[in-house]
Amino acid sequence: MSFFPGTDPEPGNSFACDAIENLIIPRSSDIGGFAVRRALPSRQRRLVGPFIFFDRMGPALMRAGEALDVKPHPHIGLSTVTYLFDGEIKHRDSLGTELVIKPGDINLMTAGRGIVHSERTPENLRGKPLSVSGLQTWLALPDDREEIDPAFSHSDAGTMPLIDNDGAKARVVIGDFAGLRSPVPTFTDTLYVDLRLEPGRSFPFPAAHEERAVYVLAGELSVADDGFAPNQLLVFRPGDEITLKAGPQGCHMMLFGGAALNSRRYIWWNFVSSSKERIEKAKEEWRTGRFEIVPGDEEEFVPLPEK
Score class of each variant (00 low, 15 high):
57 M>K: 07
187 F>M: 15
96 G>F: 02
97 T>R: 01
250 G>R: 03
35 A>Q: 07
16 A>K: 12
262 N>W: 02
235 V>E: 10
247 G>L: 04
205 F>I: 14
127 G>Q: 13
240 D>L: 13
23 L>T: 12
147 E>G: 00
299 E>A: 11
202 S>M: 03
143 D>H: 10
180 L>H: 04
94 S>P: 03
112 G>N: 12
277 E>F: 05
37 R>A: 04
278 R>C: 10
58 G>Q: 10
129 P>I: 08
167 G>T: 07
91 H>N: 13
149 D>E: 15
120 R>Q: 14
75 H>F: 02
16 A>H: 10
159 T>M: 02
291 F>A: 00
89 I>V: 15
45 R>W: 00
105 D>N: 10
152 F>C: 09
95 L>D: 08
181 R>W: 06
43 R>M: 13
169 K>N: 09
200 G>W: 01
80 T>H: 01
102 K>G: 09
70 V>S: 11
280 E>Y: 04
274 S>P: 04
139 L>V: 14
115 I>S: 07
229 A>G: 03
194 D>Y: 05
160 M>D: 07
4 F>Q: 03
226 D>F: 02
265 R>D: 03
210 E>C: 07
23 L>E: 06
302 V>P: 00
14 S>T: 14
39 A>S: 14
202 S>P: 15
254 M>S: 00
270 N>S: 14
147 E>K: 10
269 W>M: 06
43 R>V: 14
180 L>W: 11
79 S>Q: 07
259 A>W: 05
286 W>R: 02
185 P>K: 11
169 K>P: 01
210 E>D: 13
49 G>H: 11
191 L>D: 01
42 S>G: 05
148 I>G: 06
196 R>H: 08
272 V>H: 06
238 P>D: 05
171 R>W: 03
31 I>L: 14
238 P>E: 10
172 V>Q: 01
167 G>I: 08
72 P>W: 08
15 F>C: 11
55 D>K: 01
54 F>R: 07
233 L>D: 05
8 D>A: 15
185 P>N: 09
117 H>I: 01
196 R>W: 10
269 W>G: 10
236 F>N: 04
189 D>H: 09
192 Y>K: 07
14 S>C: 12
307 K>L: 15
142 P>E: 04
158 G>K: 02
210 E>A: 03
177 F>G: 09
47 L>H: 00
21 E>T: 06
155 S>Y: 08
166 D>L: 01
173 V>L: 12
34 F>R: 15
175 G>M: 08
188 T>P: 05
89 I>S: 04
21 E>R: 09
267 I>W: 08
228 F>H: 14
59 P>S: 08
272 V>T: 11
46 R>D: 14
135 L>W: 04
229 A>M: 05
89 I>W: 03
50 P>C: 14
304 L>V: 14
55 D>Q: 09
122 P>I: 07
241 E>F: 08
81 V>H: 05
184 V>L: 01
156 D>Y: 01
243 T>E: 15
44 Q>R: 00
180 L>R: 08
289 G>I: 02
134 G>S: 01
231 N>E: 13
139 L>R: 09
137 T>W: 02
185 P>S: 06
40 L>M: 11
